[in-house]
Amino acid sequence: MHPAPSVILFTTLSGLGFGMLFFLGLGVPEISGWTAFGYFFIGYALAVGGLLSSTFHLGNPQRAMKAFKQWRSSWLSREGVLAVLALGTLGIYAAALIFLDMKLPVIGIIGSVLTVATVYCTAMIYGQMKTIPRWNQMLTPVLYLVYMFAGGALLTRQVPLAALLLALATLVQMLHWVIGDKAFVNAGSNIGTATGLGNLGQVRLLESPHSGTNYLLKEFAYEIGRKHAAKLRIISVLCIGLLPVMILSFSTGGYLTIVSALVLHMVGLFASRWLFFAQAEHVVGLYYDKHRA
């Protein structure tokens, strides 16, 4: 799959933002007044910034409002609806906390639950795709949620919890790779089933339908980054969890250690999310003989 920067930014930043808002909604850490304003500002900037960047890859972004209509069947639509509900609910909670110094714990908890539901929907946009076996696994929503909680814990400076969740995120990410690497073959689609000619013998593409490229090849048959995949996986594992956990183990919750752990974590997160797309193979590649086992 083509790793569009807008989608990578959207999924990573909005995940971090909603993770932060999840903890803030639960009243963690104990903050009020301008400190609370600062925390909520960062949370909203990440979540809303991510959501806005996702509209950059649309062909007709001016019609984006229509995407709220089909929540009955579409995970993308559900994500949009829940994101607005989550941000709205937590907006009330934040306004009461910041300006009235009033805690509305029920509203906060509802908002936090909605942030989890939003990120779950984001993950299911990918997880539902039977055409992309690497994504079509149980661990895809788990992966998105564990990144959300880990990033949120880090941004709200909960040192022991963040370290634990970062370690967990690394583990889930590695499992996702292990399962994902076998997913295409296990899903059972091959050039024989794609053409229906498999029972006649071995099938290969003799001539492509077009001499140049097209939308399908650009969007679904991305091959450039795969040769660096192994290196990028090592960088991801080091940066998502290992190095930040080491830094946090020396930390007493000071800004310097938190920020350096966060920067490293984000490098790992971007690398792994880039791989999430770049390594994902779409079954349409079979018609172009792009999948060689």
Partner: peptide
């Protein structure tokens, strides 16, 4: 009504949908 998100093309196994540039 199409916003050009491309998700339908992702969901199609057959490459039957192409986004017009």
């Amino acid at each position: 009504d199409c916003i050009g998100c491309g998700l339908c093309a992702w969901a199609c196994p057959y490459g039957a949908r192409e986004m017009d540039a």
